[in-house]
């Protein structure tokens, strides 16, 4: 369940990171090692740093399942299985911290290139996870959405379950969980362009806001914070339009080991960043200047 489009992402990578797996190293984020407390008693996020609150929209690139399994000499599939616990943990942590929008990158359009056994396994796993946790998500007031889900290779029962979960939780007004499945950022943009052209808008009338209205789920706000686990530092075609102004953190922890504490540590890092959107004044809620 992680986008690793490039074949060279193998176990060796993970092994080299060694101790990076343990709790407490999360704050070693890319390019920046801000002062922060060691992991642990982090739960209620204090409103410290340069006057910044909880990010409204957090997106996670769930990377490192394969390496996690390889480190333990297990088949890659067991890494995906272990990821389930993290997903639930992160959803809970985000909800408790007051994040309004959480997006998870579960399966990219490039992931279809993986061995068919692994793809089949992922499809079964995702279906099982969706069905297992549907009542809980519903009860917690979480609105679930699936971004992408266009490929005919997706088994129809799985697509049906996705649709059912969206129907079931569509009226919820708690946190909105967007699961990017069979997602590609460029494809979304191309689709939006097609839809725009079909709508017959004259070229001069198109601005960023008009364009964004043709993206899937146009009510989704810009991403404020992207967390990509396992230390990889790539975008991998993820929600390209929406991450335009996002802050990025790259905790070295592999996704199956990522826990609520790491998540909160990332939020803290975000709060200490100084977001300027290319200008001087920070903008609330991560709205781009339009």
């Amino acid at each position: 369940m992680c986008p690793e489009p490039r074949p060279r992402d193998t176990a060796v990578h993970g092994l080299a990171e060694g101790g990076g797996v343990s709790v407490g190293h999360v704050r070693a984020t890319a390019g920046r090692a801000d002062e922060g407390e060691p992991g642990g008693r982090l739960s209620p996020l204090p409103q410290q740093g340069p006057g910044r609150g909880v990010p409204r929209h957090v997106a996670c690139v769930m990377d490192g399942n394969g390496r996690w399994a390889a480190q333990r000499s297990l088949p890659r599939t067991s890494g995906h299985t272990a990821a389930e616990k993290t997903v639930i943990d992160v959803i809970e942590a985000a909800r408790a911290a007051g994040v309004e929008w959480l997006s998870l990158y579960a399966f990219s359009t490039e992931n279809w290139r993986r061995p068919s056994d692994e793809v089949d396994f992922l499809m079964r796993l995702v279906r099982r996870v969706v069905r297992k946790h549907a009542p809980l998500l519903f009860a917690r007031g979480i609105r679930c959405r699936f971004l992408g889900v266009a490929d005919p290779r997706i088994p129809p029962p799985l697509a049906r379950d996705f649709a059912d979960l969206m129907t079931l939780t569509g009226q919820n007004r708690g946190m909105t969980l967007t699961v990017a499945f069979d997602h590609g950022g460029r494809r979304d943009i191309v689709e939006a362009a097609r839809s725009l052209i079909r709508s017959g808008v004259p070229a001069d009338a198109v601005d960023e806001r008009h364009f964004a209205a043709h993206l899937p789920f146009p009510d989704t706000p810009d991403v404020d914070l992207v967390i990509r686990t396992s230390g990889e530092q790539r975008i991998s075609n993820f929600m390209l339009w929406q991450v335009a102004y996002a802050e990025w953190t790259f905790p070295p922890v592999l996704w199956p080991d990522f826990r609520a504490t790491h998540f909160l540590e990332c939020l803290r890092t975000y709060q200490q960043r100084d977001r300027r959107f290319g200008g001087v004044t920070p903008h609330a809620n991560g709205e781009p200047h339009l």
Partner: peptide, 13 residues
């Protein structure tokens, strides 16, 4: 939708 999601799976697909 809930009924379908909560129905135990007999065989995967």
């Amino acid at each position: 939708a809930l009924l379908r999601l909560a129905t135990p799976l007999t065989s995967p697909f």
